[in-house]
Design a protein around this nucleic acid. Structure first.
Length: 493
RNA sequence: GGCGGCGUACCCAAGUGGUUAAGGGAGCAGUCUGCAAAACUGCCAUUCAGCGGUUCAAAUCCGCUCGCCGCCUCCA
């Protein structure tokens, strides 16, 4: 099956074929404007394109992936002046914070991570070329792009210039020939970061920096350009206009991909509502794998609603997953050789259908159910696995069970390679979770001992009260044949 | 007003023309347990917002109605 991708430009699912006809893929994704801590919405975009990047690589494409930092912009300048710090310093601080958040989420590092401020030369060059081709004009130190000159302006967003004009809410700027024209270069105001240019000291406008970074790091025409849904207009529309006008090559990007938004309790996340959820706050409270599972649990183009329970649900699901893997390892083998899967499995089919990660997750859990059922049946029928040293050539029935379990694990492993979920060992997963509690492990161990003494003395009342007490602090005890174990509370009220 | 999207069980969410409508969470029952918890197993949508139409066949295509949302201004 071939990979199908929904293209915002054509509003259709299309078979994916790179522009170079080979295996090389050029992919550019709009990264953050670094003026504040990144929120769960940034995480969704980053994780979605991380999975797309990894999956393309998994399919054998040689992907060159660029994700930028917009590190010069009005918001950065305003924020810096509020805090009384240098704009560059502020931007650097939030670049570091973003990188740390991405690392914590297990997002692969893109091949290129350009910064707008390191691409000023290309921005000036691009702007000059647009002026030379009459697509742009200067006015009092500013340079504007003339939106009306390119006939196909609006092709990505489906907008029509005259209708935009009618309902225009854009600032009227006397220096502009047309209110819809946008700034390629802004003359510096006192105290603002500025670079020398043929039009005097200034800084790049929004939109142009992405074109410049893309053009200089990937090329005149790329395969995939991604970003959040909100960037379709005006950002990506303008990027297309200026890039295609400058290079004369159409299309600038063959496939345009846009991820949906994260809402918080059905409401759009915004500073004014005060419901912005920072990545690091979320990661403080939840396992990173659960956060990814939550983000990938619905299709990347759909809106995704965050509620206080949604990540806990993902956590509960992950526990079941790792408990099963642990069971396979403990009961059935330590020496499973994971065979290469042939193409055409449910995981690949789902991913090939516009990166349907929710479908992949469904397929994985279906296999998890199968694995448990197999192990139950095998145990009931007497094929319970013994250590390999005891049973060098297992009976036929057991061999069949092992074979099936191997296939199931291979499928999970394959999914984990591009999902970035399901890839831990059970030990790693449960160990990570144990660090997420307020009571010290020593204290917990002491209380477990106290409780077990009470239990031996049949003082169940005391035993139960210790258990309840710990549970209220988020620590759940489990009495197993091997002794009492503990973990952080899984279920939620 | 223009453009686009969505409505699948208690909640989340796949499926977009053809066997019994994935999967997760919650719930209930069973096994296990001192009792629990966890785990596992089983059960949980004759039906896909509503109404018409196309078709041998529709949750899936078309039309209408109702409801919700995004973009059009900075935003992932």
């Amino acid at each position: 099956m071939t990979l199908k991708i929904y293209n915002s430009l054509t509003r259709k699912k299309e078979d994916f074929s790179p522009i170079g006809n080979g295996k090389d893929v050029l992919m550019y994704v709009c990264g953050p404007t670094v003026y504040a801590l990144s929120h769960i919405g940034h995480a969704r975009s980053a994780v979605a394109f991380d999975v797309i990047y990894r999956y393309l690589s998994h399919k054998g494409y040689k992907v060159k992936y660029a994700r930028n930092y917009t590190d010069v912009d009005d918001k950065i300048i305003n924020r810096a002046s509020e805090e009384g710090v240098d704009a560059k310093e502020l931007a650097e601080r939030y670049i570091r914070a973003f990188d740390a958040d991405m690392d914590a989420l297990g997002v692969a590092v893109p091949d290129v991570r350009p910064k707008a401020t390191e691409t000023i030369g290309k921005i000036i060059e691009l702007t000059q070329s647009l002026i030379a081709k009459k697509y742009a004009y200067q006015s009092n130190g500013d340079v504007f792009y003339s939106v009306r000159l390119k006939k196909d302006y609006g092709k990505l967003s489906g907008k029509n210039i005259d209708e935009l004009e009618a309902g225009a809410r854009v600032d009227v700027n006397e220096d502009k020939l047309d209110p819809l024209d946008f700034a390629l270069w802004k003359a510096a105001k006192p105290g603002e970061p500025a670079w020398d240019s043929p039009w005097g000291p200034g800084r790049p406008g929004w939109h142009v920096e992405c074109s410049a970074m893309c053009l200089s790091h990937l090329g005149d025409a790329i395969d995939i350009h991604g970003g959040g849904r909100d960037l379709i207009f005006p950002h990506h529309e303008n990027e297309i206009a200026q890039s295609e006008a400058a290079t004369g090559k159409t299309p600038f990007a063959k496939y345009w991909l846009h991820n949906g938004f994260v809402n918080v309790a059905k409401e759009k996340m915004s500073k004014s509502v005060g419901n912005v959820l920072n990545i690091r706050d979320v990661l403080q409270a939840h396992d990173k794998e659960a956060v990814r599972l939550f983000l990938l649990g619905s299709h990347y183009r759909s809106p995704l609603d965050y509620t206080k329970d949604s990540i806990k649900e993902a956590e509960a699901a992950l526990e079941r997953f790792y408990k099963t893997i642990q069971r396979i390892e403990e009961e059935w083998t330590a020496d499973i050789i994971v065979p290469a899967l042939q193409r055409g499995n449910a995981v690949i089919d789902a991913m090939d259908d516009d990166f349907n990660t929710a479908g992949v997750i469904g397929a994985v859990f279906k296999e998890i159910n199968r694995a448990n059922k197999l192990m139950d049946e095998a145990t009931d029928s007497g094929y319970k696995r013994q250590p390999a040293t005891v049973l060098p050539s297992p009976p036929r029935g057991e061999g069949r069970v092992r074979g099936k379990l191997e296939t199931i694990r291979a499928l999970c492993k394959e999914a984990s390679s591009f999902l970035g979920v399901f890839g831990s060992t059970p030990e790693e997963f449960f160990k990570r979770r144990k660090t997420q509690t307020d009571v010290s492990p020593e204290e917990i161990e002491r209380l477990i001992e106290e409780r077990n003494t009470a239990r031996r003395g049949k003082d169940f009342k005391k035993a139960d009260s210790i258990r309840t007490e710990l549970l209220e602090k988020g620590v759940a005890l489990e009495d197993t044949p091997k002794g009492t174990t503990w973990g952080v509370k899984r279920r939620f009220p």
